[in-house]
Design a protein around this nucleic acid. Structure first.
Lengths: 242, 242
DNA sequence: TCGGGGTTTCGGCGCCGGCCGAACCGTCGG
DNA sequence: CCGACGGTTCGGCCGGCGCCGAAACCCCGA
């Protein structure tokens, strides 16, 4: 008897069209903000908040607060599998390409942009991946710069003269972490933030590696930037994207 | 958008505790009557009727009218699989042995009885299985007597003298089929009905193979019946049940 | 042909739950 | 420090749906 109660409770989470829309959108495996989901589902933010509470409480979603944003994603592969099965075993639907396409982002923004004071977009994620691959960065469990990473960053920002204790690798007393992960809203993967991210971004802009496109947050890699990034982190398609 | 609508509609079918109870009960793969399900779920017959309508319309259940009864079962293996997955992926439940036990039937009735004019219960199902196993009966897709089956039945009812065109194997013009399946309400499996089932039942009673228990529909196999059935269809525990 | 039991339909009641607007809070950006 | 913005909470509205009793329907069994 209590088993049917549990089943009905769980099914009820998907029995609302708005919540179903949310879950199907999240099937892409990425994280969405509450506001995005509200827009996507066509309801007021207040309504989406309530739905997200239920879905999180029901174990379907997990949330990740980040500043004033609330990112939410499917809690795991089994749940995703279950929802896909449910969506699949229904009378065959034409499946009109779901995903993030509805939340149309400027192509330039998706390519590369600033996120507060660091880099995001495919560019930011690619840089983060390359740093991880080169052993400059550790993702486990939180973002931390390795010793080589700190050296690398210090050398980057002080190309001439000896290393000084004023570089970003120095024991600053700021509460802000040297490195931290920041969830990317187009890539939905974490990219480098924190002091290191900000330093890198500032340096890239002041060195002419990147230029802002118009007045927005989008940035473009210059030829000089392509060369510099390839030299520092190896070749990557993100450096050479049109 | 319409996909989420379909998903939510489907999930809504299981989102009610009464309907969830019904679906879990039907997970045993057998057919239940509307009244049984109403009792099992603890609701009025009128309420169960409404739920069954929705479940049938939603493709979860298929129904099978039989006289004044409405038998209902899961529509297929995929749906059963899906429901099991749903029930399984929820926080682990102790699973307190579900099934038909609540619908207590008289032990004698469950053993053997008449169903209208033919045999039912474990006895009826066992006879049907034995006939199928001996190639006298084909279950695909509807019940039909094979040529050996027709010969067998004719010989059974006319033990002396030559085969006559008046036997059950003769081309009768009745609209009633020679053989058909009838859903058994204790075994939840089909047993032989139609002219063949009626002929067999009548013969078994008139030959003293079976005797009625009291005034009810329950029947008991006599020693003579045990010998005859073993001779005709081979040994089977159903012939010798106490 | 009649009685009885399983099932269905019909109204009506009551509650649960989704939805929003408005006010509030915390974070970010200048 | 202040304005902007994303998110949350709080009421209140409203539609949908589950539930039942009563009456009708249908078919079996006698």
């Amino acid at each position: 008897m209590t088993e049917s109660r549990a089943l009905s409770r769980f099914a009820a989470l998907l029995a609302d069209e708005t919540r179903a829309t949310i879950c199907l959108a999240l099937l892409d495996g990425r994280a969405w903000t509450a506001g995005e989901l509200a827009t996507h589902a066509g309801v007021a933010p207040a309504t989406a908040t309530g739905h997200l509470h239920k879905l999180v409480a029901g174990g379907i979603l997990t949330e990740q607060r980040q500043g004033r944003h609330r990112y939410v994603r499917l809690s795991g592969a089994p749940i995703a599998q279950l929802i896909e099965d449910l969506a699949g075993h229904i009378p065959a639907t034409p499946t009109p390409a779901r995903g993030l396409r509805a939340v149309t982002a400027s192509a330039a923004l998706a390519r590369g942009r600033t996120c507060y004071d660091h880099l995001a977009g495919r560019l930011g994620v690619a840089i983060t991946d390359a740093m991880d691959h080169k052993g400059l960065l550790s993702r486990d469990p939180g973002f931390t710069l390795t010793d080589p990473g700190r050296t690398w960053l210090t050398a980057l920002t002080t190309p001439t003269g000896p290393t000084t204790p004023t570089g970003p690798g120095a024991p600053t007393r700021s509460r802000r972490p040297l490195a931290r992960g920041c969830l990317d809203w187009t890539e939905r993967r974490e990219h480098l933030a924190g002091i290191a991210g900000a330093t890198l971004c500032t340096h890239a802009l002041t060195s002419g590696w990147l230029t802002r496109i118009g007045s927005g947050r989008a940035v473009r890699v210059t030829p000089a930037g392509t060369a510099a990034l390839t030299d520092l982190l190896g070749p990557h398609s993100a450096w050479t994207e049109p």
